[in-house]
């Protein structure tokens, strides 16, 4: 469970996040949706501590993350897996080395145990026989999947995915959505996903937070989106004629 209380963040006087409070639940896929530039990535970076919010508090299962210094954060950091919007794979390493990296850094597993774990994680994201490829030899979708494999290598308690399926074909996108949901439920992870993909919202929308101009504009579940009369949410979700027709 992750709780945000009154998070605000501005850059050079420009308010990006304005008093956002929300509770993300354990074992569920929690979604943050909103248009491009609405502050989803900034919110996620504040949550994991890559950016410091100007105001507000972040609690990881009641542990006050925002009040901690770097050293105190370390144990929590080790429970976090994150999939960056651009993948952020280490490009000096092969696929296998990327997924193995957190294991080498934080466990004392033998090389054979690490190999086994890497293969398990890669199979989990439906990647076979790519262990020795360099990251430049991967397609966009494969990079995303390797990034997910690396994020789950250490069995995280908290998983953050910044647009895990943007730029993927619809079929692969759904494979990834399902994968994230399965891992979340199987290992009882608190998962937060940034997206503006409506398929994902329908597939994963246990809890949905709609950000609009940096404010929490709406909160509910995937079902609720169909019934809401929030004008801005309707305009965001039902942007296409097809979907508007569906709603009616």
């Amino acid at each position: 469970m992750i709780e945000l209380r009154n998070i605000s963040k501005s850059f050079a006087g420009r308010q990006i996040l304005d008093d956002v409070s929300v509770l993300f639940e354990k074992g569920k896929t929690n979604l943050v949706i909103g248009g491009s530039g609405s502050g989803k990535t900034v919110l996620m970076k504040c949550m994991v501590g890559l950016l410091e919010p100007d105001h507000g508090h972040i609690f990881y299962d009641r542990r006050d993350f925002s009040g901690m210094d770097l050293d105190e954060r370390k144990p929590i950091r080790k429970e976090i897996g994150m999939v960056f919007q651009g993948g952020a794979l280490f490009d000096s390493m092969t696929v296998e080395e990327n997924v193995m990296f957190p294991l080498s850094m934080f466990t004392s597993m033998s090389i054979a145990e690490k190999r086994e774990r890497v293969t398990f994680c890669l199979q989990r994201v439906s990647l076979n026989n790519v262990n020795n490829l360099s990251t430049s030899e991967l397609s966009g979708g494969m990079k995303k999947r390797v990034a997910i494999a690396r994020a789950i290598a250490l069995n995280p308690r908290y998983l953050f995915c910044d647009e895990p399926n943007s730029g993927l074909d619809p079929q692969t996108a759904i494979v990834i959505d399902n994968l994230i949901r399965e891992i979340t439920e199987e290992f009882n992870i608190t998962t937060v996903i940034n997206t503006h993909d409506m398929n994902s919202v329908m597939e994963l929308g246990y809890k949905v937070l709609f950000l609009y101009k940096g404010k929490k504009w709406w909160e509910g579940d995937a079902e609720g989106i169909f019934r809401t009369d929030n004008k801005d949410l309707n305009e965001f979700v039902f942007a296409s004629k097809l979907l508007r027709g569906m709603k009616k």
């Binding site: 994991v48 370390k74 950091r77 080790k78 994150m82 490009d91 934080f106």
Partner: peptide, 18 residues
Amino acid sequence: GTMKVTEQIDALEIMGIN
């Protein structure tokens, strides 16, 4: 610089690595 702009440095920080 490349590691910074492609967020590889952030990825290390997330893992709790200095």
